[in-house]
């Protein structure tokens, strides 16, 4: 049984103009995989990531996550899946302004019904994991881009998800800082978490076990090592 299994998944936006963002995508990800998705802008990478992460549903085709058929789940059940199994990291960090790093990370446990004190305790550990033990009480505006992205990763992993999805997490960072972020994600993968990363950067993609190329909504090829 695969952790995630897509078969013949298509996603189209009715428009007009109608856009076929994904066409007949078959894809499997196993527990412990590290996957990079690479492709030009507009090729459907984000759409794919949202469907893999139960944030969106396909127009046709089937999606199975942790052995559940997504099409049979209600919005509430999908939310439950995201709350417990899945972590997301975005290119623009998406931290809550005016809220400390610790509180931002603690939000990652909010929808698991965890009490406030435990949320903060675990958020502290997650910040240590990403190397930000000294920055817990800083506001996002007081942090560098790389530090903000580490806070966002800590928020994604504070609930120990099975899989973390990152949509161009290094897109807004310089090469050196971006490389540090990739280190964090690969460490996470080494500890057992499945990691799926979208990137434009060939060097970044090369550091992952699998590299899937996508072009015009179709999978154009895969390298695996």
């Amino acid at each position: 049984m695969s952790l995630i299994e897509l078969s013949k998944v298509s996603k189209s936006y009715p428009g007009p103009p109608r856009v076929d963002a994904l066409i007949d995508v078959d894809l499997r990800a196993e527990g412990g995989d590290s996957v990079a998705v690479i492709g030009p802008s507009g090729s459907g990478k984000s759409t794919l990531l949202h469907i893999l992460g139960a944030l969106d549903r396909p127009s046709t085709g089937s999606v199975r996550i942790a052995d559940r058929d997504i099409s049979k789940l209600s919005d509430k059940q999908l939310s439950g899946l995201r709350a417990n199994l899945i972590g997301f990291v975005f290119q623009d960090f998406f931290l809550l302004a005016g809220t400390t790093a610790l509180e931002n990370v603690a939000q990652g446990l909010l929808y698991r019904g965890v009490a406030a004190r435990e949320r903060r305790e675990r958020a502290g550990h997650a910040l240590e994991t990403v190397g930000l033990a000294e920055r817990m009480d800083h506001l996002p505006s007081q942090l560098s881009g790389g530090e903000r992205q580490r806070v966002a990763i800590a928020r994604a992993i504070v609930g120990n998800p099975s899989v973390v999805f990152a949509d161009e997490p290094t897109g807004n960072l310089d090469t050196k800082t971006g490389s540090g972020i990739v280190d964090v994600l690969l460490n996470l993968n080494a500890a057992g978490t499945t990691v799926v990363v979208i990137t434009h950067d060939r060097e970044v993609a090369a550091r992952f076990d699998r590299e899937i190329s996508i072009r015009d909504g179709r999978i154009a090829g895969e390298r695996s090592s």
């Binding site: 944030l55 709350a83 975005f90 998406f94 809550l96 929808y111």
Partner: peptide, 16 residues
């Protein structure tokens, strides 16, 4: 919108 999207990604239901 961003905050709402992030909360949904973190597992918030429509009801939440």
């Amino acid at each position: 919108r961003m905050e709402i999207g992030v909360r949904r990604a973190l597992g918030a239901t429509r009801g939440h």
